[in-house]
């Protein structure tokens, strides 16, 4: 439903400006439904991790003394959920889009491989970001603020609302270099065959690594805090 409304706006824009951002109308429609399919697996509106709840209840102390590290264990859980949601909440929007407007389906197996790799890295980046947000609850009294802020940043700068290529001037350059671009814009461009594969994957891998390292540091900090304060 929401995807369909968004698609009409993009169609109107591309009718006014054919070829904008190197997309034709079919690409723009496809963009809309591919990104719609990302919402659930990447939890683009935030949440999905059990950590904030566990921190509030104090159960986090138990998680920290488990043999499996908190970050790895949360990651495994998140990837499991993402794969499941990709099937049940990702495929239907694509089918709706295909039925109502028709979407571009790449015929080239190489492009599919590039997309799947990009999508997998996007899930990692999304996890890395949400993990940091989830841990921040530990240092905050009211975590709703961070949650909303994260949602605003993610939906806007990932390309979820509009393709980053059509952002004006410098804003587009900034948006394209931030980690959120690695979640939605880049894997979608890989799907459409509009991005250089190796460079794109390298950029995604870079942000995935940065966020995971930050996550590991944050985990260490929170363990320190919990141990010192006696859980």
């Amino acid at each position: 439903m929401f995807g369909v409304l968004r698609a009409y706006i993009l169609i109107a824009l591309w009718q006014a400006r054919p070829g904008l951002a190197g997309y034709d109308i079919a690409d723009a429609i496809t963009y809309c439904f591919v990104t719609q399919a990302f919402i659930a697996p990447m939890q683009l509106f935030g949440g999905g991790l059990a950590i904030p709840e566990r921190i509030r209840s104090g159960d986090i102390a138990l998680d920290l003394v488990r043999p499996a590290p908190l970050q790895a264990w949360s990651f495994a859980e998140d990837v499991g959920r993402a794969s499941y949601l990709f099937l049940v909440r990702g495929i239907p929007p694509m089918l709706v889009g295909a039925a109502v407007f028709g979407v571009v389906v790449p015929g080239d197996p190489g492009r599919w491989a590039a997309f799947m790799a990009g999508f997998a890295l996007a899930v990692v980046v999304s996890f890395g970001w949400r993990y940091l947000i989830a841990l921040s609850v530990c240092w905050l009294i009211d975590d709703r603020g961070v949650a909303v802020l994260s949602m605003v940043l993610t939906t806007f700068f990932s390309g979820m609302m509009l393709p980053l290529h059509i952002f004006p001037g410098w804003l587009a350059d900034v948006a394209r270099s931030l980690p959120w671009a690695a979640m939605v814009q880049l894997p979608t461009d890989l799907y459409l065959g509009k991005a250089a594969v190796m460079e794109t994957l390298a950029f995604q891998a870079f942000w995935a690594t940065v966020l995971l390292v930050l996550g590991a540091l944050a985990t260490r900090a929170i363990r320190h805090k919990v141990v010192i304060q006696g859980g």
Binding site: I9, A12, L13, A16, L20, L162, F167, P168
Partner: peptide, 13 residues
């Protein structure tokens, strides 16, 4: 979003 759309075009529909 509206402002960005109109940064690319003068009229929409």
């Amino acid at each position: 979003v509206i402002l960005i759309v109109f940064a690319n075009t003068t009229t929409l529909a």
